[in-house]
Amino acid sequence: MITIHSVSSKRDWKQFFEFPNHLYKDNPYYVPTLVLDEKWNFNPKKNPAFEYIDSVAFLAEKDGKVVGRIAALINHKLNKAQQKKYMRFTRYDVIDDIEVSTLLFKKVFSWGKQKGMDTIIGPIGFSDLDKQGLLVEGFDQLGMFITLYNHPYYHEHLQQLGFTKDADWVEYKVYVPEQIDPRIARISEIAQKRHGYRLLSFTRKKEVLPYAHQMFHMYNESFANLYGFCPLTDGQINLAIKQFLSLVSLEYLYIVVDATGTVIGFGIMVPSLSQAMQKSHGHLFPLGFVRILQSLKKYDVLDMYLIAVKPEYMGRGVNAIILHEGLKKAMENGVKYAETGPELEDNDNIQTQWKSFRTEQHKRRRCYIRPLE
């Protein structure tokens, strides 16, 4: 018999966070989420998103064993801005049993209708910086630290439950060339000489702090019209700064300012942490932190976390400045390729950047939609 109950006790939450590690124990492509981050995400005292979000989580058990989990949330801030009654599902993981999925979603649908919602989308999380999109292509590719991994049958379960495609993201391997395309170097040089743009350099992380808030406020502007995006509050920005600065390597942090010193673009790349997370099962202790530090020093793959340009500066060489410097560092350090992370399939502005490179579109992920009635 399958039972569903809401997550409330410490034991419940521990099972909720650890279930994916058990489900994907022998899967070579699954990359665990950092459990500490997940504890913060679901703690209203730690996650500023709870200022405008309601959330609930459920576990499914069969014969005393956890066989599925799911969380649901309502972003009241975004619903008000868009005049919608949408809810979201996230952290959906199940064994291959449609009955488990059916019962989990039945609980989620009921909760959403009680809250006055009429539509559900997902998987999509607390913010655009959260993991989102169900994997539908690329099951034989190593995951990224910032993305989801799931079995192929998840898609089949969602289809049987009446979900359809709402949006797709694609991901690329961008291979580092032997030589930098002269056009990128030329555009970068012209942009800096003609417009007075400057690429900042840092020797210590605390030197980044005066620009960090500008970066994420600009990020809000740059991503404003993208699918599912909700602008970060100051509290969320403070949290994002702490999280990114704890991982970022200064040689892969690129901030471009105009002649007045205002941030007009930035890029953040990080050496791949996938294998470190696999070995540590998403835990920092006892050896997880050490493995992360090792990954930041010895690597041949980069993960692109964020690239953003102030909207009015698109097409004016800011991207070229970031790409040019990123390529130089990647070539110096023997990087084979960089992974882009999820990009909306119709986001031509971002995908145009890769036309000068040898690329491989190796993953696709999807956000689904379904009316609650």
Rank of each mutant, 00 (worst) to 15 (best):
E189C: 12
E189N: 14
I120H: 06
H157V: 02
G196K: 13
K106W: 00
L199K: 10
L142F: 10
H157R: 02
T164L: 08
L161P: 09
K107H: 15
E156P: 03
Y172D: 07
E171T: 01
G133N: 03
E137Q: 08
E156W: 05
P177M: 07
F145H: 08
F163H: 04
A185M: 09
M117G: 07
P123L: 03
V170C: 10
E189K: 14
V176W: 11
S110A: 15
K165E: 13
P182W: 06
K113V: 14
I124E: 03
Q160K: 15
G125D: 01
N150I: 12
R186D: 08
P182A: 08
K106Y: 04
V136A: 06
Q160H: 15
G122N: 05
P177D: 06
K131M: 13
L158Y: 07
R198H: 13
K193R: 14
S110P: 08
S110G: 13
K131V: 09
D140W: 00
A191T: 04
P177T: 08
L134S: 11
K173H: 14
L135G: 04
H195A: 11
V170T: 09
T119N: 08
I120E: 05
F139A: 08
I187K: 00
I190R: 04
G196M: 13
Y154T: 01
Q179K: 10
D118G: 02
F202Y: 09
W169Y: 15
